[in-house]
Computed example of a mutant assay.
Amino acid sequence: MVKALNCPNCAAVFNPSDKSCEYCGSYIITSEAKQLTYDLNEFKPTYQKIFFHEIEMSANELPIRSGMANIYYSATKSDGGRLLLTNQRLIFCAHALNINPNLYLEIKIDDIDQAELGLNLFISQQY
């Protein structure tokens, strides 16, 4: 059973199984998939705005890939959530089960010099 949500743009009732709000045309990403790569042809100019878990994309910003992620502060402390890569920035949003569920970080793509794939105690991949 799919629960109804509200559109972050116009507040109309929105069914998460739909891809866009029927009232304002905003594209709303609510995927529960562990990882997802987006087809950029999917985002048509008729959509007024694009939202990823209620984060509004900037002008000319398109999602490229999203997935589960962790931010590691030390070997014993981390926060879990979702990571979104767009053509303009990298965004981390903590999930509600964290001590700090409102944690939100973003880095502009131009500020990233290097990224490496790592492994943390065979539990999850980290960047």
Rank of each mutant, 00 (worst) to 15 (best):
L121V: 08
I99E: 06
C93W: 01
L103H: 07
D79E: 15
N70D: 12
Q125G: 14
N87Q: 13
Y73H: 08
C93I: 12
L105R: 13
I107P: 08
Q114C: 10
A69T: 07
N102S: 14
S124Y: 14
L85P: 05
R89E: 03
R82L: 06
Y72P: 00
D111T: 13
I107K: 09
L103P: 04
G118I: 04
L90T: 01
I71C: 03
F92G: 02
M68G: 10
L119A: 14
D113Y: 14
L90N: 04
L85C: 07
A94C: 06
D113R: 15
A94N: 07
F122I: 08
C93M: 15
P101A: 06
C93G: 09
Y104E: 11
G118P: 01
G118T: 03
S66I: 03
D113K: 14
N70M: 07
D113M: 12
G80M: 04
Q88D: 03
L83A: 06
K108Y: 08
N87F: 11
N100R: 11
Q114H: 14
N70T: 10
F92E: 01
E116V: 10
L84Y: 02
A94P: 04
M68H: 13
Q125W: 11
S124T: 13
Q88P: 02
A96N: 11
A115T: 15
R89V: 00
Q88Y: 04
D79N: 12
N102F: 13
I109Q: 14
K108H: 07
L85R: 10
N70R: 12
Q125R: 12
I107N: 11
Q114D: 15
L103T: 02
L97I: 09
L119S: 15
A75N: 13
E116H: 15
